[in-house]
């Protein structure tokens, strides 16, 4: 019975994926035909086949890997450092109510600030290489990480904390046995959001200074009016972001499975 159900479920899933792929192909086809019959100006919109040809060229010379690897490195560094530091700071704020009250207005101001506008300054501070770009990425995601994680932490049911205290749990035990595990899913969703934010930071950083990376390709393509190059950069970007999202999804599944079925 159970097997039968899962078979049906898998069939449904396959059907969904097939429809999604057909939708994509339909859209690309429309774009290609539109460009060929002159409905879309190729100069402004390029077309899928030219993007594919260009991609093949970059692939053959291995040049694409240089750009992908540098952007990936920057993004992954930005996500891990930014998320870890953000969660750590949220933990400190949770542990010290006085500190969190003190810093609250500053966090709100920092959050409201358009971080991309400050990117040039950050690059001056940290250098024009990978370091500067990673800093831009971190600056974009860290404040949101702190604020949302902190809010998750303090929104635990007060009675659960009383329950822990009635066993004479100390602050560290309350954190490790109650606050953190009950927010594991929330923290993972914060990290998922951070993927997108880190990419924004990396692309902005690369627009400003770099000599390599997906952001650089897009920027360069725009400057020389090579729309196929721009489109290729955008497609690669979205694929990379999607893959990273799926990897975090996988990590989430493994973590949840490890601690039992859980929430």
């Amino acid at each position: 019975m159970k097997k039968c159900l899962s078979k049906e479920y898998r069939f449904e899933k396959l059907k969904l994926i097939l429809s999604q792929i057909s939708l994509l192909i339909f859209f690309l086809g429309l774009w290609e035909i539109g460009a060929r019959i002159g409905l879309l100006d190729e100069f402004f919109f390029s077309k899928p086949s030219s993007v594919a040809v260009l991609f093949w060229k970059y692939l053959r010379t291995y040049e694409i890997f240089k750009h992908i690897s540098i952007s990936l490195l920057e993004t992954i560094l930005g996500i891990t450092i930014g998320s870890a530091a953000g969660i750590l700071i949220a933990t400190i704020l949770w542990a010290s109510e006085r500190l969190s009250k003190l810093l609250e207005p500053f966090l709100i101001i920092l959050n409201a600030l358009p971080k991309t506008a400050l990117a040039p300054i950050m690059i001056i501070w940290a250098g024009t290489g990978v370091r500067g770009i990673v800093l831009v990425a971190i600056s974009i995601l860290i404040i949101v990480t702190i604020i949302s994680t902190y809010n998750y932490f303090i929104n635990i049911e007060p009675e659960k904390i009383l329950m822990m205290k009635s066993f004479r749990a100390n602050k560290f035990q309350i954190y490790t046995k109650l606050i953190f595990p009950s927010n594991l899913v929330n923290i993972i969703s914060v990290v998922k959001i951070n993927i997108g934010l880190a990419w924004v930071g990396v692309i902005v950083g690369e627009f400003l200074v770099s000599r390599a990376g997906i952001g650089y390709l897009i920027m360069y393509g725009g400057q020389v009016f090579r729309l196929d190059l721009v489109m290729m950069g955008v497609v690669i970007l979205s694929l990379l972001a999607y893959i990273m999202y799926e990897i975090v999804n996988l990590i989430e599944k493994i973590l949840l499975k490890k601690r039992g079925k859980g929430i």
């Binding site: 009675e159 659960k160 329950m163 009635s166 749990a169």
Partner: peptide
């Protein structure tokens, strides 16, 4: 020692029943 039970059971959803029951022992 004093044991306190609240209106809600406050069981931790990610722990098994056994792991929930030994929570206090674990803390102490």
């Amino acid at each position: 020692d004093i044991g306190y039970m609240f209106q809600r059971d406050n069981l931790l959803e990610w722990r098994t029943i056994y792991k929930n029951v030994i929570l206090g022992l674990e803390i102490q």
